[in-house]
């Protein structure tokens, strides 16, 4: 671990904290444009966070200590995830702490806490949301793992830094398996981040909601942390997708110049990615909750196909 590595790590964490709400704001803006609505300000999520932090916390009478601890735990998990994902450079002191499989585990930990917190107050919506969140979880995780398996086979490693380094510094080889894995990853990211075909982040009071149903009882700083954590999750998934499937421009080592060059490129990639996300959300309708297994089943199938194609075409020949 070098000094500049540690610096890059701290910088990546700070950048995640700052950029994550911006990304959510940007997606919201793009969505509004695409739907011919007046766009909210780009900085809306920051105003929201500030407002929520300043408000009092209103707790339900029977909310337990777990309910109060959960937002902090979830925030911690998501921040850790952002620290592990190689956003700007692959030389991160935190990277060995968790490889791709452990990253799935960290997301799983956050999921369990948010589901439990949803069940804590004991309202109808809370337990409904918790149950659906776990449903999406067990459907998405196998697909996500198969995506990581395919990538791990290409890079001969499950460490995210090594995977990204291998993919960024290879000769131009077309891997059909990567295309399959990429589509599958997109599907999984949509489901995991409660985006449109599976869930709608912009609505309360809809009987099919998932994420919002769990956090209905949260207020004030707790809600702020949960919202922040949700945008960190979106940021982590976006950066992960960009790093894995469009890895060009990520600094290989502790080179300050390369690091500086990586920032505008990351911003550009995130902007395009956010726009595409908004486009996907606009052209698709939210599906019934019991179509979600089919949607994520397709993702799983694509990931498995990617793995098989990898084994057939790219190893044996």
């Amino acid at each position: 671990m070098s000094f500049s590595g540690a610096l890059a790590q701290l910088f990546a964490i700070a950048l995640a904290l700052v950029l994550a709400p911006l990304l959510s704001g940007w997606v919201g803006q793009c969505r509004a444009w695409l739907q011919s609505r007046t766009a909210p300000p780009l900085l809306l999520p920051y105003y929201m966070l500030r407002k929520l932090f300043e408000k009092d916390v209103v707790l339900a009478h029977n909310a337990s200590s777990l309910f109060r601890a959960a937002p902090f735990v979830i925030f911690g998990c998501m921040l850790l995830a952002c620290a592990i994902v190689p956003t700007l450079s692959t030389d991160l002191p935190f990277a060995p702490a968790a490889d791709a499989l452990a990253l799935v585990g960290i997301f799983g930990l956050a999921r369990i806490f948010i589901a439990l917190a949803g069940m804590d107050v004991g309202t109808a919506f809370g337990s409904l949301g918790g149950r659906r969140e776990m449903l999406v979880g067990f459907l998405a995780e196998p697909a996500l793992l198969m995506v990581f398996f395919t990538l791990a086979m290409i890079a001969q490693s499950t460490s995210l830094a090594t995977i990204v380094e291998t993919l960024a510094h290879r000769e131009l080889i077309i891997y059909p398996s990567l295309a399959f894995a990429g589509v599958a990853f997109t599907f999984v990211s949509l489901a995991e981040n409660a985006r449109v075909p599976v869930d709608n982040p912009a609505t309360h009071l809809e009987l099919t909601m998932i994420h919002e149903a769990m956090i209905l009882e949260y207020t004030g700083r707790h809600l702020a942390l949960i919202e922040w954590a949700a945008s960190l999750k979106l940021y982590a998934y976006s950066c992960l997708g960009l790093a894995l499937f469009f890895p060009w421009g990520i600094a290989p080592g502790d080179n300050i110049l390369a690091l500086a060059a990586a920032i505008p490129l990351l911003l550009l990639k995130l902007a395009i990615g956010g726009f595409l996300l908004a486009a996907i959300e606009t052209v698709n309708a939210k599906m019934r909750i019991f179509r979600a297994p089919e949607f994520l089943g397709t993702a799983f199938m694509l990931a498995v196909l990617g793995l098989l194609v990898r084994l057939l075409l790219e190893v044996k020949v």
């Binding site: 009092d56 209103v58 339900a60 009478h61 029977n62 309202t123």
Partner: peptide
Amino acid sequence: LFHGRVRRSSPWDC
């Protein structure tokens, strides 16, 4: 940075 105030009330539940 902000405060640690907490109020109790009945759950909202939409």
